[in-house]
Write a protein that binds this DNA or RNA. Structure first.
Length: 159
DNA sequence: GACGATAGCCCTT
DNA sequence: AAGGGCTATCGTC
């Protein structure tokens, strides 16, 4: 039986906004998004649906990503956190504790922990989860989080 | 047990 | 007000 099979593979694009290359890995579902070391050389490659969606995202489109996720190797709790995070709308933010409430646990820190392991940043918009006071953290560097949030705020305001 | 991408309370200035 | 210290809380390793 032939499944409708999205392409597997690894792509690389350059983000002007972040000043670095990004690697997109798809293997029976979107597997990982990585921010690559800016000091090294990278070659762009664009074959996956997600890659083109990501480019549109960086061009400022308020896009909703369509790819299936492959996160079954993560713990139940982490999957729950990430799935709830995926529901956060473009340009809006919630706090770690609000997210904790939504999935029915009181541990805001545990949520932060799980988000820190997010293998698919941007597509799973963990940058939209912030501390009650302040911006919170970001495993790939706080400046990336800030820039993503600013990009989205710009576009929401320019409706 | 210890550690976090937290939050809230209670102090000081 | 604003900022620092302390601790309750909870899933991982």
């Amino acid at each position: 039986m032939m499944k409708k099979c999205a392409k597997n593979g690894i792509d690389i694009i350059y983000s002007e906004l972040l000043g670095l290359h990004i690697e997109i890995e798809y293997n029976t579902g979107l597997r990982s998004i990585k921010f690559l070391n800016p000091s090294k050389n990278h070659k762009e490659k664009k074959t996956l649906d997600t890659t083109f969606e990501l480019e549109r995202y960086f061009e400022g489109e308020m896009i909703k990503f369509s790819s299936d996720l492959n996160i079954s190797h993560l713990s139940q709790f982490e999957q729950k956190v990430l799935e709830e995070t995926k529901k956060i709308k473009y340009g809006s933010t919630i706090t770690y504790s609000q997210l904790a409430d939504k999935i029915g646990c009181g541990g805001a820190r545990a949520v932060g922990n799980a988000l820190g392991k997010n293998p698919i940043p941007i597509i799973i918009p963990c940058h939209r989860v912030v501390a009650k006071k302040g911006i919170g953290g970001y495993s790939a560097g706080i400046d990336i989080k800030t820039r993503l949030l600013e990009l989205e705020k710009r576009n929401v305001n320019n409706l």
